[in-house]
Each structure stands twice: as C-alpha cells, then as structure tokens.
C-alpha cells in the first residue's frame, strides 16, 4: 500500500520548549493509525502541523504526496479534521453547520446537498438535522462534529480525541462510524486518544508519544509482545541485586528489575529494616505461572510481600513499561 501520510523529523518548538520533537512515521492508505499518549504529549500539536493550523519549526510531511508547507491548499483539500473541541455553531442546525463547512471546502449546489445528506446518514442524525445543535445531547454533538470533518470526503481524516466527554452509547456509535468509514470507503484515519482501549479496538498500528517524542511505533500485537506475558509489580522491604538475579532465574520470568529505576540497589541486604518498601518490576512470559514461582520463592526466604499488582499486557501496560507512568497521569 502506498503511504497517504509521510512524516519526517517533524519539530514544533515554542521558545526552548519542544512540543513535538523530531517525530517520523508514515500511514498507509486505508490504515487506521493511532497516536496514543497522555495529555500534553504532543498529539494535538502534531495534528495541528499536519492540518496546516500551525507551521512546523522543522522537518517535513507529505499528504497524498503533497508537501504540507509548499502545497498546503492541496493537502487541506484531501484531509479532514475532527478537532477535540465541539467546533460547531450551536445556534445553527446540524444541516446548516455541515452546509457551511462544505462551502468552505468549495462545495456548492446539488453536490453539497448530497454530501450533507450522506454524512448525516453516516452519523445517524438525518431525522434531527434541522434542529439547532445546542438542543442536542453531548454524544449527538460529537457526531455532528465528526460529520463536519467528513463532508468534503477527505482521503485522510484526523480524529483528535473524538470521544472526550461522550456517553458509552455514543462512543460505540463513533467507533462504528470510524470502522465503517475505513472499511466501506477506504478512508485513512489518524486517531489520537489517551484511552488505550479505543486505540486497541480501532487501530492497525500505533505510535506511542510522550513529551513530544515517539517512544514506540508498531502494530498493537508487536507492542504488547514487548511485555511478553505481562508484568508483576511486587512490593518488598528491600530490593537487592542478588534478589533481582534470583527472581530473573525463576521459570516464566523474563526479567526482574527495580520498579523505580531511580532507587539505588545494594548488592546484598545489610539486615537493617528499610524505612519504605521498594518495588520490583517482573517481566514475565506467562504472568500466572510466574506469579506462583515468585510468591513461592519469596515465602521460602521469608521476604514479606508488601504489595502485589498483576499488569495484563495491553497498551496501558506498554506505556507504563516504557515511561514509568500511567497514560492518564
């Protein structure tokens, strides 16, 4: 598949602060690509550059082969944006909003009317299309927000956190719409979110972004494979190198390492009780089997377990593993 989007070393700086710091990736035609990261990671800034809202400080990107700086008009014509905010005119009806945004993309007359009817059907709002948007529920507004990004039939759609503040029913409807657009119309979609469940459900490949950098990019299966069979987080009074070595040697354990890399690890315990417990992060090949072995090992040596967490392999865990923090922190 040819690439609909190619991003090379894209940078956006505000003074000394790099909101986006040298990111590169590509999206194939017909792909649903996820940008996963916590708030402030640089997802929206990346989209803002790719949609021509802000100019990049460095790097390049091409949409459908058109450079986003030199051929901005062409890139805008084939891409669509569904912003995080409900970017609509509340006192106008859904139809009037869509009509207006269609005109901005140069649509007129019968074509415009057909496109408006089409996107209203996609988001299942045909029967209430003539009501002012301000009368809609939050979920319905979100659906109109999506429709406004579709009215000109873009080849590449940027969906920026489209489910923020949406009830479960509308969220499901949005998921269905995204999958339908991709499956039936071959639309390429870049989906940003800090909800890993959404990205897992919708996306073929995911770039995990943190502090303006892409820290991992792969298919969801490959990203999860980083974690093997899952992670155990075990609280003990003292973490020593000897303890880590012996835990790593247990069956079904891939690796044991300090939960907090900043904490200094002594070779052996000096027998003095530690003021605070420490955490060991244990990467496993099979979390259940490894758990049995770890508990047995610690009991045999009378090492008390002060806490125990089993992290199943998912994107949240991958993010935690890669950054040491949670997605929604």
């Amino acid at each position: 598949m040819p690439a609909i989007l190619e991003v090379e070393h894209l940078v956006k700086k505000y003074g000394d602060f790099a909101a986006v710091n040298d990111i590169s990736f590509s999206v194939e035609e017909g792909e649903v690509f996820g940008l996963l990261g916590p708030n402030g990671a640089g997802k929206t800034q990346t989209i803002s550059m790719l949609t021509g809202i802000v100019e990049p400080t460095g790097g390049t990107a091409r949409i459908g082969g058109h450079d986003i700086e030199r051929q901005l008009k062409e890139t805008k014509q084939i891409s669509g944006l569904v912003p995080q905010e409900l970017a609509l005119y509340p006192t106008l009806s859904a139809r009037a909003n869509l009509d207006f945004f269609g005109r901005i993309y140069g649509l007129r007359g019968r074509t415009l009317k057909e496109r408006v009817d089409d996107v209203l059907q996609i988001v299942a709002l045909t029967d209430r299309a003539d009501e002012p948007v301000e009368n809609y529920s939050g979920g319905m507004k979100r659906r109109v927000n999506i429709a406004a990004g579709l009215v000109h039939q873009p080849k590449l759609l940027f969906l920026d956190e489209p489910t923020v503040g949406v009830d479960p029913q509308s969220r499901n409807h949005i998921f269905e719409s995204v999958l339908k657009l991709n499956r039936d119309r071959g639309m390429s979609i870049i989906y940003t979110s800090h909800y890993m469940e959404e990205v897992e459900l919708l996306c073929n490949r995911v770039a995990i972004i943190d502090r303006g950098r892409i820290i991992a990019l792969d298919t969801i299966r490959n990203l999860m494979a980083i974690l093997g069979g899952g992670i155990l987080q075990v609280g003990v009074p003292t973490v020593t190198r000897q303890l880590l070595r012996e835990l790593t040697a247990l069956p079904a354990v891939e690796e044991a390492c300090p939960g907090d890399p900043a904490v200094a690890v002594a070779e052996e315990s000096n027998g003095e009780p530690e003021p605070e417990t420490q955490t060991i992060k244990i990467m496993t090949r099979d979390s259940q089997y490894a758990l049995v072995n770890v508990i047995g090992y610690l009991n045999e040596r009378d090492i008390p377990i002060t806490s125990l967490t089993i992290l199943e392999p998912n994107l949240e865990t991958v993010f935690l593993h890669l950054t040491g923090k949670k997605l929604r922190e």
Binding site: L86, A87, L88, I104, G106
Partner: peptide, 13 residues
C-alpha cells in the same frame, strides 16, 4: 473559544 476558528484554519481557506 468554540474551536471553529481552528477548524476553519484546517480548511482550504
């Protein structure tokens, strides 16, 4: 404030 300005900026205008 509503975000429509951003949406317009993303359009071919």
């Amino acid at each position: 404030k509503e975000g429509t300005f951003r949406r317009l900026l993303a359009g071919p205008i």
